[in-house]
């Protein structure tokens, strides 16, 4: 199945016959290597963020995340995510519906285009909006005459974030909906259900966990995007700085502890969303047997 990130259902595979499973020793070694690798590559940097954040004590930590500039950066980050995520969610559902339920030519190219923002350098993602909306850009003079400011203001930051997070929901849903096929929807249609009814009553319940996971990842990325946003932000303190940019500024002001404190805030936001995801998955696993007995 195609999919950069794909939902993982909770089917326990450990119930396989004993003779297919590896011996305990092999299992132990493999788990060990996997943990070691994750520890070295992912956990260690995270741990260092927290260690640095608390280096100067809890007081500095709290001060740095409640300082006005930090709060305004947090606010801007939340606003940006609040716009970018719903927009991309609607897009993701529409794109997945078109791609998975119908056949048409050029589907591969369409999927490739949806994937493209994954592979485009963040530097370029920012640059393209400067080329379009910058004062020297293609639309710049026209916008300027009308007093519309896109880059170096909130709309530009939103656009860059939307660009970067385009694929997340769509990529999550496409393989899932492809695997589910169209039988259920067709059955509903033959029973006389209308379009939105089919979607709302048949499709959505089937994809809701995948959708949620896509939304969570999309949100995490939207809040954490640095490169593209840095190009279009203008870095005005307290106005166009998002959290990742605020972190960079603090770091450049030699306020290392404060910068890591704010970074840890982002990590925690991510961790919280991931915990929510786990809970949701666990609940969905519990619901399944219940649904069967209904």
């Amino acid at each position: 199945m195609a999919g950069a990130i794909t939902v993982h259902t909770n089917e326990e595979t450990s119930k396989r016959p004993q003779h297919i499973n590896e011996s305990a020793l092999v299992r132990f070694v493999l788990i060990g290597i996997a943990m070691l690798f994750l520890g070295l590559v992912v956990l260690l940097p995270l741990a260092s963020v927290f260690v640095e954040a608390f280096k100067k004590g809890v007081g500095v930590y709290i001060d740095s995340i409640t300082e006005p500039d930090a709060l305004s950066a947090l606010k801007l980050t939340l606003i940006v995510a609040l716009i970018a995520v719903p927009v991309n969610t609607i897009f993701g559902v529409a794109a997945a519906w078109a791609i998975s339920k119908f056949r048409f030519r050029g589907k591969n190219i369409l999927i490739t285009l949806i994937d493209l923002p994954f592979a485009v350098s963040p530097v370029i993602s920012g640059l393209i909006y400067v080329l379009l909306f910058g004062a020297q850009g293609f639309l710049g003079p026209w916008l300027d005459e009308r007093g519309i400011q896109i880059i170096f203001a909130v709309p530009g930051i939103v656009l860059a974030t939307v660009f970067v997070t385009v694929p997340f929901v769509a990529r999550e849903l496409i393989p899932l909906m492809q695997a589910q096929g169209v039988q259920e929807e067709e059955a509903a249609a033959s029973l006389g259900a209308k379009g939105w009814q089919i979607f709302w009553k048949v499709t959505l319940p089937n994809i809701k966990w995948g959708l949620l996971y896509g939304v969570i990842l999309c949100n995490a990325r939207a809040m954490g995007e640095f490169g593209a946003v840095s190009v279009v932000s203008g870095h005005i303190r307290g106005e166009t700085n998002t959290l990742p940019l605020h972190i960079e500024i603090l770091y450049n002001e030699y306020q290392f502890s404060a910068s890591f404190a704010v970074a840890s805030l982002l990590v925690m936001l991510a961790v919280v969303t991931l915990i929510v995801k786990s809970i949701v998955e666990w609940k969905s696993a519990q619901q399944k047997p219940a649904a069967i007995t209904e």
Partner: peptide
Amino acid sequence: LVRYKFPGKKIIDSLVDLPFALPTAVAGIA
């Protein structure tokens, strides 16, 4: 993650997504 059961598996599973969420500059500095 798919084939074995071990304590802390859920956490490890979530950990895998964190690089998506951490701002790249923070990752670089760390």
